[in-house]
Amino acid sequence: MSVPVPLVIGLDVGGSSVKYVAAALGSAPGDAPQVLRRGTLATPGRRPVAGLVAAVAEACGSDEVHALAVSIPGLIDSGTGRVIRVANLPELDGVALQEELASALSLPVRVINDGHAAAIAEARWGSGQGRADVFTLALGTGIAGAHVLDGQVRVGANGSAGELGHVVVEPGGARCSCGQLGCLETIVGAPALQAAWRDAGGSGSPVELLRAFGDGDPRAVAVVERAASALADAILTLLALVDPGCVVIGGGLASAPHRLVLRAAQLVAERASFHQVPPILPAALGRWAGAVGSAATALECLGEDALGATR
Rank of each mutant, 00 (worst) to 15 (best):
A283P: 12
S273V: 14
G145H: 08
V111A: 08
A240P: 05
V188A: 12
L307A: 14
A59S: 07
L262G: 11
S16P: 01
G79Y: 14
E91A: 14
S203G: 13
L236M: 08
L181S: 05
V134L: 00
W197D: 02
T80C: 04
F135G: 13
S203N: 12
R175F: 00
H166K: 05
R124Q: 12
A190I: 04
V13P: 09
G159D: 03
E122Y: 13
G142S: 04
G162W: 02
G79H: 15
G140L: 03
V111M: 03
V155R: 14
A146F: 06
A67R: 04
A230D: 06
G142K: 05
V155D: 11
V155C: 11
L241H: 11
P90C: 06
V261R: 07
T237M: 08
F213Y: 15
A87C: 10
L184V: 05
R175A: 06
V247W: 00
L97Y: 03
D305V: 09
V148S: 08
Q276K: 12
P282R: 10
A256E: 15
F274L: 15
H147L: 15
A157W: 08
G182Y: 08
G165R: 06
V223W: 11
G94L: 05
V134A: 00
R263A: 06
I280L: 15
G126P: 03
P278M: 03
A54H: 09
E163R: 00
C60A: 15
A104P: 02
A102I: 03
L137I: 15
E122R: 14
R219I: 12
S27H: 06
A256P: 07
P282V: 12
G162E: 07
R175N: 00
P278Y: 04
I187Q: 11
G74C: 07
I9G: 01
A146S: 13
T40Q: 13
V56W: 01
A24N: 00
R85L: 02
A190Q: 08
L239K: 02
V83I: 12
V13I: 05
A228T: 06
R287C: 09
A32K: 11
